[in-house]
Design a protein around this nucleic acid. Structure first.
Length: 315
DNA sequence: TTGATTTGACCCCG
DNA sequence: CGGGGTCAAATCAA
């Protein structure tokens, strides 16, 4: 697959150059805010293209893996039909490459998730909720996440969030930001690089996490708020502990937060747990910034490659 | 009316 | 055989 990915690498390379030049140009256009904005937009456009190419490269890398999944899905459906009637929940072979588990109190990341299931898990007080990316079908985004309230462990208010797969979608709801160069950090190549959230950020995590101290009250309120629907994402993603658990992927996915909303009509067991949620990004267009790495939205092709390689190794 | 969530059923895998 | 993951009809909410 490397052969297939190679052209993408070339594209990325060229785009990086272009972005570099645009960055330089931007520096020369300090006086004119108008021009600066334009350059900014150019940068974003380029960055998006880079991201797309990266994703495509990664996708082709992963193609062989995915294939089994696709095949499975297809035959699974047929089989189900053949088996007659309402046979659901068939094939679920997980060939996803990345699995990252985090413990967090604030369930928000920059993505729109759609809940597709909830399940009581044995030996767990709280049910586990299953989410997939809202753009699973329209953009073939394979990202998934599973959320489970920790229960009475050391932190009853925390959620254990498992991210599976990477986001390859671009949420249209996320408008490209005009100003991203916060804190003047974003000058570099990756100034506009955003997309794929699962950026490795172990170090960043150490650096920045302690952020929020959510009291349990706050947590409760959060649940309530989340239930109410969308909520703007806050980037710090505070206090979340990330632990790349099962797998090898350094992929620190995005932070998660999640909108919970089943409260309304559901008498279901264990409300106030992990629940559903559609959460949307806040509109800065930081597509998928590793939530706990403040400005580290760097995401290079190398990262992706490593990411997938490791993923393969693991799954 | 449309899209999201709930929830029971179904199936794969260990 | 049972647990866990997924599907999809029913239901809810905007």
């Amino acid at each position: 697959m490397a052969a297939a990915a190679a052209p993408y690498a070339r594209v990325v390379e060229d785009m990086l150059k272009g972005r570099d030049y645009a960055t330089q140009l931007q520096a020369l256009l300090h006086e004119s805010p108008e021009a600066g904005r334009l350059v900014d937009q150019i940068l974003h456009a380029i960055s998006r293209s880079i991201d797309t190419a990266k994703a495509a490269a990664a996708a082709s890398e992963e193609a062989s893996e995915v294939q089994s999944e696709v095949t499975c899905a297809g035959s699974g459906g047929a089989k189900r039909k053949a088996a007659g009637g309402d046979k659901r929940g068939a094939c679920r072979r997980r060939t996803q490459s990345s699995i990252v588990t985090k413990t967090m109190k604030d369930l928000e990341d920059g993505h729109a998730w759609r809940k597709y299931g909830q399940k009581e898990i044995q030996n767990c007080k709280h049910p586990k909720a299953y989410f997939r990316c809202t753009h699973k079908y329209d953009q073939q985004c394979a990202a998934q996440r599973q959320v489970q309230r920790c229960g009475d462990g050391e932190d009853p208010d925390a959620y254990r969030v498992t991210y599976i797969g990477v986001h390859t979608c671009r949420d249209p709801a996320v408008a490209p930001p005009l100003v991203v160069h916060a804190a003047g950090v974003a000058d570099e190549l990756h100034a506009g690089s955003r997309l794929i959230s699962f950026a490795p950020n172990a170090s960043a995590a150490t650096a920045s996490t302690t952020t929020t101290g959510n009291t349990s009250q706050e947590a409760d309120q959060k649940d309530a708020t989340l239930m109410a629907g969308l909520r703007p994402l806050k980037l710090e993603g505070g206090g979340d502990q990330e632990e790349v658990l099962s797998s090898l992927t350094p992929a620190g996915s995005s932070a998660a937060a999640e909108a919970t909303r089943n409260a309304t009509a559901t008498p279901g067991p264990d409300q106030g747990d992990v629940t559903s949620g559609l959460q949307h990004c806040y509109g800065t267009g930081l597509f998928d910034m590793p939530f706990d790495s403040n400005y580290d939205d760097t995401f290079d092709l190398d990262d992706i490659v490593v990411f997938f390689d490791q993923g393969h190794a693991g799954y």
